[in-house]
């Protein structure tokens, strides 16, 4: 102990120097946006590469469960295959598909870091800008919505998870189309809150909540949660609804990043309305 103290006293000038430099660099990174972005990109890359090594180990351990889930997903996809359909009338089918546009593109991504125990949970994905990931794209898993891409570096991206007190997802009731916003209160990773549903709507426990498609981030109709219980509050216009998430956020490893091809077009058009309002 005395040696340690003596060591510090002996090199006190050097430690003073280090202290001042740390303070200076803290001020630099905090206040200069350019230095800030370089600093965070560098640390993001470093942290990302460590996590990707770590997750290659945990992935192997989870293999069995992932396989099971893939099998279930395959099963549900099987029924859409063309060979499963039988012709009812006529000899030929002519498909002139000009009515349908492809609107959403999907990119698969591996989760390399995830948390559920904080107030603001973020997920790190193994793909980034080089794979065409941009800020604001949606992320969905095999069984529901995961979150929205929050920041990207060259090879990695972070996702603002549904389990983040700042996250708001536009959602609607599957059977009645009334829409509200899905939030998380930071308590239980299995439960969330559906806000802004007017209290004249008929609800039942177990009703499914799906994405509304309004926000141009997610396609409409992706399952998110089921209603756990709800309450009509006196003097309020809206229900107090608690929901069970369909996704087990503690156990996800592969997800899809959703790109909306028409997003810019929609936002551009909606912006025009706002400008007209201003005039």
């Amino acid at each position: 102990m005395r040696n340690l103290v003596q060591f510090f006293i002996r090199y006190s000038f050097f430690f003073l120097f280090l202290l001042f430099e740390v303070v200076s660099f803290y001020i630099i990174v905090k206040n200069n946006s350019f230095h800030n972005s370089i600093f965070y990109t560098a640390t993001n890359n470093l942290v990302g590469s460590i996590y990707s090594k770590y997750s290659s180990i945990t992935d192997y351990i989870n293999l069995k469960e992932v396989n099971e889930k893939l099998a279930i997903e395959n099963e549900s996809l099987q029924k859409f295959q063309f060979k499963n359909y039988e012709k009812l009338f006529g000899e030929n089918i002519l498909v002139r598909d000009t009515i349908y546009h492809k609107k959403y593109l999907y990119t698969k991504a591996k989760i390399i870091n995830n948390s559920t125990n904080k107030q603001q949970n973020f997920i790190t994905l193994s793909i980034g800008e080089l794979n065409g990931i941009k800020k604001g794209m949606g992320v969905i898993g095999p069984s529901g919505v995961i979150g929205v891409v929050n920041s990207t570096s060259k090879h990695y991206s972070t996702v603002l998870a549904v389990l983040n007190i700042n996250s708001k997802t536009s959602a609607k009731l599957k059977n009645s189309n009334y829409f509200g916003s899905l939030q998380w209160d930071g308590k239980n990773y299995k439960e969330g809150i559906l806000a802004d549903i007017p209290n004249h709507v008929e609800l039942r426990n177990g009703d499914t909540i799906v994405t509304s498609g309004f926000s141009s981030i997610f396609p409409a109709g992706i399952d998110i949660a089921t209603i756990k219980d709800f309450e009509k509050l006196e003097g309020e216009f809206f229900y107090d609804i608690r929901v069970n998430f369909l996704v087990d956020y503690k156990n996800i490893s592969w997800v899809y990043v959703v790109k909306n091809i028409f997003k810019e077009e929609q936002i551009e058009l909606e912006k025009q309305n706002l400008q007209e309002d201003d005039q």
Binding site: F17, F20, E21, S24, I27, N32
Partner: peptide, 22 residues
């Protein structure tokens, strides 16, 4: 730091001056 305050380069001159003093 006082040079930094005037020239909007928060921390840069401070770190360099500390290095000089070291």
């Amino acid at each position: 730091l006082s040079i930094d305050l005037f020239s909007n380069t928060y921390g840069m001159h401070a770190s360099a001056s500390v290095f000089l003093a070291f």
